[in-house]
Design a protein around this nucleic acid. Structure first.
Lengths: 196, 196
DNA sequence: GCAGTATTCGACAGTGCGTCGAAATTTTTG
DNA sequence: CAAAAATTTCGACGCACTGTCGAATACTGC
């Protein structure tokens, strides 16, 4: 009784490549992982790799697409009104955990983006979407008088992203307590920067 | 009458390589410039290049050392007391001009740092020195009650660097007016973030 | 103009990338 | 279940760039 056609052999291979890639990019630097490494790790020859992915950064792009979606699911603060420090903390806490769980991958992506148009596009779009949602929230709060108007909402949003990224850089191997401290610092900084 | 031994032929060649490199890295991406390009641009064969520099990033390191010194010379705000918005503006204006004049080089350096230990060290040290001086200033202002103590001086300093770098990203081809606007925005942001 | 140093270069070897077409395997179909 | 069709695998090849060596050549001071 064959109900569903299970995943074909190729699907499994593709999953294996992604699996190995996630592990390798988490530990080594981007350049230190060769296509040969990925193929060998997935149990195929180097040229076999090209049946599944056109290039090395393409694998990273596939992995990052998932992470990017995870991030997007954590944006609870953007729908609030006013400073809403508790929602901001919750949003930052969720994204900080995602960041920590993917620190190596994010670092490799940043490196690889320099030489891969598709990956660069993914990251750019991902960041743009975040910044736009942040800017929209701040714009609303400027209209209702809770946020400063000394700086445009767009630039405030960019600054929030920038501050967040540097501080997240701290949590590569952070404990839960350290992670909470980083988030608290960010909440304070963002409130100071944007609200009265 | 030979007073001074002029620069030897080799010194001139080295200068030529640095010259060509500055121009090429300003226009193309880091990977798009090969050692062959640099050598040809300086009028020697590819292997001749290795007499002067061990690797491609080493050239970038030499160029960046100068830029790093230029930046260090613009730090007038760090010696002040309190918010000192005028000195802050002056410091940011100077560094913004240096940044704009070297935008391409800075971008290539960021890329190359991923694969070159010496260059990474230079940039890390350069940033660390900046952050330490900023932190020292903020620590003083926290002691005399002008700066917030809700966030440690070290983290505030990191955040300032982060905000500065993103906003400087805007001034790749900026006019003087745009540059001033970016600087004004930064002055406002830093004052909001750090002072009462 | 000669000894010693500085500079240049061609030949070689290594690494990783990506393409091609043929072979082997899996899946579908009758 | 066997033949047809598809999917998957791989070895051979060519390419671009890097880095090393030693021999040849060009400078330099005396």
């Amino acid at each position: 009784m064959r109900r569903k056609a299970g995943p074909s052999k190729g699907d499994l291979r593709e999953a294996a490549i992604l699996d190995v890639a996630r592990r390798m990019f988490a530990e080594r630097s981007y350049e230190a992982v060769t296509i040969d490494d990925l193929a060998a790790g997935a149990g195929i020859s180097r040229t076999g790799f090209y049946f599944y992915f056109p290039t090395k950064p393409a694998v990273l792009t596939a992995l990052m697409a998932r992470v990017s979606d995870d991030f997007a699911a954590s944006h609870v603060w953007f729908d609030s009104t006013g400073p809403a420090p508790d929602l901001l903390r919750e949003q930052l806490l969720m994204s900080a955990r995602i960041w920590r769980a993917n620190a190596g991958l994010l670092s490799c992506s940043a490196t690889a983006a320099a030489s891969s148009e598709p990956l660069r596009d993914l990251l750019t779009h991902s960041k743009a979407r975040y910044d736009e949602r942040a800017a929209a929230k701040i714009r609303r709060d400027q209209a209702n008088g809770t946020a400063t108007t000394a700086i445009t909402a767009e630039r405030l949003a960019e600054m929030i992203s920038a501050i967040r990224d540097t501080q997240y850089g701290r949590l590569d191997q952070a404990t839960d307590t350290e992670l909470r401290n980083v988030v608290d610092t960010l909440v304070t900084a963002i409130q100071r920067l944007v609200y009265h």
